[in-house]
Simulated assay, not measured.
Amino acid sequence: MQEQPLISIITTYYNSVQLGDFVKSSMKCLQNQTYQNIELICVNDGSTDSTLEDLEYFAKQDSRIKIYTKENQKYAQYSKAYGQEKALGEFIFLFDHDDLIDFDTIEKCYQTFLAHPELDIVTPIVITKFTDGNIKNIHNIYSENTLNKEFEYKQFSGKQLIKDTVGKYDIHIRGLYKSFVFKSHSFNFTEPLLNADEIVERLILEEATLVGSCDAVYTHYIHPDSSAKLLSLKKIDITRTDYLLRRIFKEKGIYEPRKSIFEFVAYKNLVNAIKIFHHFAKKMSSEEKSAQKKRLLESYIELDKETVKSQFSGISKLYNSLLLSNFSLMLWFYKFKN
């Protein structure tokens, strides 16, 4: 009987006990996977609560758990990169500490690789839920209307899928990756950004010859008090991400077909970033304020204003055309409207 290959499951933890006792909930679904030959790469990202103690408790009972503690660098990309470097498995699965997977998720993903050896990534069905149990959406790579329909195997090229992330994600993948694909681009991105992982994930996705689905389930939760929902100066980073992604998409020749989607979303992100800039203005040093203002200006300059204006009509078009005509005017306007 052929020996099962090692599968690495990477989970990053930061104050996971304080945020919702997520060490226990994540360990329950990971340790009980029906696929046994796994290593659990647990990156403790400088937690200040009892996260490390909880991880050590579980590690004493299960030798598959490997704990790595690093200094918190304020950006999740660095803890993901740390786990990426430590993973030794032939396949790698990235798991968020506050999510859940069914006990047979890893096994079903692996069995799909055996049935379709041409695949580089296998993704479960992804159900996005609010913490009250209500479902926001369901994805079998692309959006599905219901869980009740019979599962349909789907496969697409990575190059096709990255096209459908231009401007917004039309897909949702939480996959089991062949190691060489997952490690093709480091999460240790060239600059610290709140959502640098969205850039890296796209670059990795493009490396996949084919991506297939299976009928396992990954449940992704939207927590109302998560850091992603909190007002933070780091959210100005999103405009920088748009700036970089626009250039990447143009270089890859996939920008034009979805230019209107991309630019409209980038405009909304810029407006939100300006509001955040004004909200935190009094707390910033003059140097930081100047640096953030420069980033906003760069994003404004790169914005395809004609494409944005074309998506409005009537009074809305006049209003937004006026704001888009001058960066200083836009900055001033949202100082007071904010």
Rank of each mutant, 00 (worst) to 15 (best):
P5C: 08
P5T: 02
L6D: 11
S8H: 05
T11L: 02
Y13W: 11
Y14M: 06
N15A: 14
N15C: 10
L19S: 13
G20K: 01
D21A: 11
K24T: 15
M27K: 09
K28I: 03
K28D: 12
Q31L: 15
N32V: 01
T34I: 13
E39G: 01
C42L: 11
C42N: 07
C42A: 15
S47K: 13
T48I: 15
T51I: 03
Y57A: 07
Y57N: 15
F58Q: 01
A59V: 01
K60H: 12
Q61T: 10
R64D: 05
I65G: 11
I67C: 06
E71K: 09
N72M: 06
Q73E: 14
A76S: 00
S79C: 09
K80S: 01
K86Q: 00
E90F: 00
F91T: 04
F93C: 05
F93Y: 14
D96G: 07
D99S: 08
L100H: 04
E107C: 04
Q111E: 14
T112E: 07
L114T: 14
H116K: 11
P117G: 15
L119P: 04
V122R: 06
I125L: 12
I125T: 12
F130K: 14
F130I: 08
T131P: 00
T131Q: 12
K136L: 15
H139Q: 08
Y142T: 08
Y142I: 14
S143V: 13
N145S: 12
T146H: 06
L147C: 14
E152W: 03
Y153N: 04
G158Y: 03
K159E: 09
K163D: 01
D164Q: 13
T165G: 03
G167D: 01
K168Y: 13
H172F: 05
R174S: 12
Y177L: 02
F180G: 07
K183P: 03
S184K: 02
H185K: 14
H185T: 03
N188E: 14
L193N: 00
N195W: 14
V200N: 03
V200E: 03
E201S: 11
L205P: 06
A208R: 12
T209S: 12
L210N: 02
L210A: 06
A216N: 08
V217A: 09
Y218K: 12
T219W: 05
P224E: 11
S232W: 06
L233K: 13
D237C: 09
I238A: 08
T239E: 04
T241K: 15
L245E: 13
R246F: 04
R247T: 13
F249L: 05
K250Q: 15
K250S: 10
E251G: 04
G253N: 02
Y255K: 05
Y255F: 12
E256Y: 11
P257R: 15
R258M: 01
R258L: 02
K268F: 03
N269R: 15
L270T: 08
N272T: 06
F277T: 03
F277I: 08
H278T: 05
A281I: 13
S286F: 13
E288Q: 11
K289C: 07
K293D: 13
R295K: 10
R295I: 13
L297K: 12
E298F: 07
E298C: 11
Y300R: 02
I301S: 13
E302S: 10
L303Q: 01
D304H: 05
E306F: 09
T307K: 09
F312G: 10
S316P: 07
Y319D: 10
L322G: 07
L324C: 07
S325H: 10
N326K: 02
M330T: 15
W332Q: 13
W332E: 04
Y334T: 05
K335A: 00
